[in-house]
Design a protein around this nucleic acid. Structure first.
Lengths: 189, 189
DNA sequence: TTATTCACCGAACTTGTATTCAATATACAA
DNA sequence: TTGTATATTGAATACAAGTTCGGTGAATAA
């Protein structure tokens, strides 16, 4: 194995294991030595690749930030379809690509009080709830989304998704909901 | 003020502030000195009342455990009414008695990996999801709850509530959803 | 009035964990 | 082949946060 490959491999290893532990145990509860131990490497090596626990977490948040870009422009024709598509993607991925689900949870965790400020600020640049509120309003005009405060509807939807993802990250064996069940929070009867 | 009163007052003060911080920042992220500082008391005094951070948290979990008793016994003609009543109670309380909401979030946090084992075990004795799955099944027979894996439906419902409560604990100014929106996860169209 | 208990403080102590470092082995370039 | 860069380790260090402790003054019981 070439040096470059090895480096990339290790970095991926570390990132994914860190993601898993940060999400299931939380940032402060996850010891750098936990990550090293589970990977069977030394603590020193981890610091060879990432200069601090905080920087490692920050890398993950940046990675999550990239994943959030795009796909949002065509949404206004039929917002409910947009929500369906997004949710379908999330629930589908949750099974065979657990990291999608975990990344979702991480981004929310990163926004919490108690997180290092730099991390928090970066994570707060994603604001699904407010972005989606506009879509909800549009959907209400089109008659496909139920009446009510758009912000409340949007936050109900995303909080539900959040709750589901969080639980799934902790208890993967629990069966996931059907897309429609959750979409029905928004859908006009 | 008599000594007894003072003692009870301080204990309440500490418990509520601890609840608030544990829920908004997390267990590990909350320093004992944070709690003391916010209350304007010394760290030493906190240890005068609670022998450790863990015991303090444990007290809160025990308190939450008591709140969970009862209420589940009363049989309903239709399980969907049970879910409506519970959710209504939770959402109603969330506004004027923030601690109800916080307690709800705390109980879920206490079940996470990374928590001290004693706490975790105690919290795990509450299992809304499995308890409610039976009710869901009953509701399906009666035709008021939609078809699908009862466990998946139950967990979708409770995870949604969890997500909403969590967010509300962190961002109280966000408008809460209407009960029906969330009930519609379960309700048969 | 006096003795005792208890709320309270702040500084010292302890422990756990992030971070650094010196040393070694391995890949790679010259 | 030899020299340099880099992957890796395990132990040393630093520091933050939980916990302990001795002392002080106010409430209370005698």
């Amino acid at each position: 194995m070439t040096r470059k490959e090895q480096k990339e491999m290790r970095q991926k290893q570390i990132m994914f294991k860190a993601l898993e532990l940060f999400v299931t145990k939380g940032f402060a509860e996850t010891k750098i030595s936990d990550i090293a131990e589970e990977l069977g490497i030394s603590v020193g090596l981890l610091f060879h690749y990432y200069e601090s626990k905080e920087k490692l977490y920050l890398e993950l948040v940046k990675m999550g930030l990239e994943g959030t870009q795009g796909s949002e422009k065509t949404a206004f024709d039929d917002p409910i379809q947009y929500f369906e598509k997004i949710l379908n993607g999330l629930l589908g991925a949750a099974q065979d690509q657990p990291w999608v689900c975990m990344m979702f949870v991480l981004m929310a965790q990163a926004q919490r009080k108690g997180m290092p400020e730099e991390i928090r600020q970066l994570a707060l640049t994603v604001d699904q709830i407010h972005f989606s509120a506009a879509l909800v309003e549009q959907g209400q005009k089109l008659g496909s989304i139920r009446d009510g405060d758009p912000l409340a509807l949007s936050s109900a939807f995303w909080c539900s998704v959040q709750g589901i993802m969080e639980y799934h990250a902790a208890v993967p064996e629990m069966p996931l909901p059907k897309t429609e069940w959750i979409i029905d929070i928004l859908r006009k009867a």
